[in-house]
């Protein structure tokens, strides 16, 4: 089977994950719904994971993929705690619109 990196090169993966990362940044900046912002964070994490896997294949080194496992574990922990915080915010405020969370604003 022909290998993908031989056909299109590792640079194409660089560009793809750069675009995916900036889409994630766009989501963070554009939306006010906290859950959508969480999804944008997931998109950014996945862009970086994709890059790690591409370079792991490029250098034929398993360490990159092991690093992706750790990053997935951290992402899972982050989502669990983050959604718990969102649920608790929703209980106290009745919405998760982040523009309404300005109790600490002076």
């Amino acid at each position: 089977m022909e290998t993908i990196l031989k056909v299109i090169g590792v640079e194409t993966y660089l560009y793809l994950s750069a675009l995916l990362f900036s889409i994630g940044v766009f989501g963070i900046l554009l939306r006010r719904n906290a859950i959508i912002m969480f999804m944008s964070i997931e998109i950014m994490l996945n862009a970086v994971n994709l890059m790690l896997v591409a370079f792991s294949t490029f250098h034929q080194d398993a360490s990159g993929q092991v690093f992706v496992f750790f990053s997935m574990a951290v992402a899972a922990a982050e989502v669990a705690v983050g959604l718990a915080i969102l649920v608790s915010i929703f209980r106290n405020h009745g919405s998760i619109d982040i523009d309404k969370l300005k109790n600490l604003k002076g």
Binding site: I35, E42, N46, N49, Q65, F69, M72, A75, L83
Partner: peptide, 24 residues
């Protein structure tokens, strides 16, 4: 899968498409 990382692909589907998205 295209990068030939099969195990990672399966783990990715289980963790992200399965667990995290169900949570969300």
């Amino acid at each position: 899968l295209l990068l030939n990382a099969q195990f990672l692909a399966i783990v990715h589907i289980i963790v992200y498409s399965g667990a995290i998205m169900i949570l969300m």
